[in-house]
Amino acid sequence: MAVIRTIDLTKRFKDLVAVDHLNLDIEEGEIFGLLGPNGAGKTTTVLMLSTVIKPTGGTAVVGEYDIGKSPDDVRKLIGICFQEPKLLWVSTPWDVLNWHAKVCGLSTQERKKRVKQVLEDVNMWEHRRKNVHGLSGGMRKRVEIAKILIQRPKIAFIDEPTAQIDVVGKHKIWNMIQELREEGTTIILATNELHEADILSDRVGIMHKGKLLICDTPKTLKDSILGGDLVEIRLEKEATQDAFDELKSFHEVVDVVTVKPTNLKVHLNKVEEIVPKIMELFMKRNLPVTSISMSEPSLDDVFVHYTGLTIEEAQRKSP
């Protein structure tokens, strides 16, 4: 059953269409990864679904409530972890979380217990009395995530949970997000990090320029693109155009993606037969191969395929 359904959801900022007729169903109890390059409209979507900003067109149903008609009811179901931590500007982590828990209706006992537990879980217990101004970016983000872990809403919007957070912290937070889901929370995870979306999400949707390009399970998406195999070739020198063309002309080769001029990703079938031919092709043109590796496509490849951007380009496009 869909717990969120958007119907032509649209947001314009003057000339810019940040979210463009978005139609999306999110199932109850799933982790839904909302992917897209910078400026794709992920945060704007999340803000509209959580009734923080109003759509300029279309609508959405969250739980059983229309975001335009019954925003007060929607807000009782949801919790949001903002991309930019929104901490009360003169406060300590403990005060921020305690007040948040109070507003979300937790009893005094429950509140004390959970605030302590979660502060420990996100490794912020010893900093609980520090002024938030004195916290590092990653620490603030931890406090921001703690809000939602304490609240345990029916529907959680989590916007870039691990940006700025160190590797150990990342894994911890991923575990906590999964635990939250196991307790019954539906999670909408907006992220740039494809690896994060891949390991956490049941389904992902890729947004680009405000539109939803594709939406499915990570596995189906990875299988859907091109040939089943992926070969990554690194060359000593830049590949010439005719080498490139000949590579493409093999009928086993489905697509060639230039990651860098000296680094090609080839999607293909029958990898065992074709690799010797590829080696030969480059040797013939005096383009020594420094390494060749085979792998399954990752969500990065899906992303590149559907947005037409390389990851580097996508990151450079940031406004």
Binding site: R75, G79, K86, L87
Partner: peptide, 16 residues
């Protein structure tokens, strides 16, 4: 100050 720092987004997301 809240509006400029977008802290009001947080206030607006609360069950109030």
């Amino acid at each position: 100050m809240e509006v400029r720092r977008e802290i009001h987004h947080y206030m607006l997301s609360l069950p109030i």
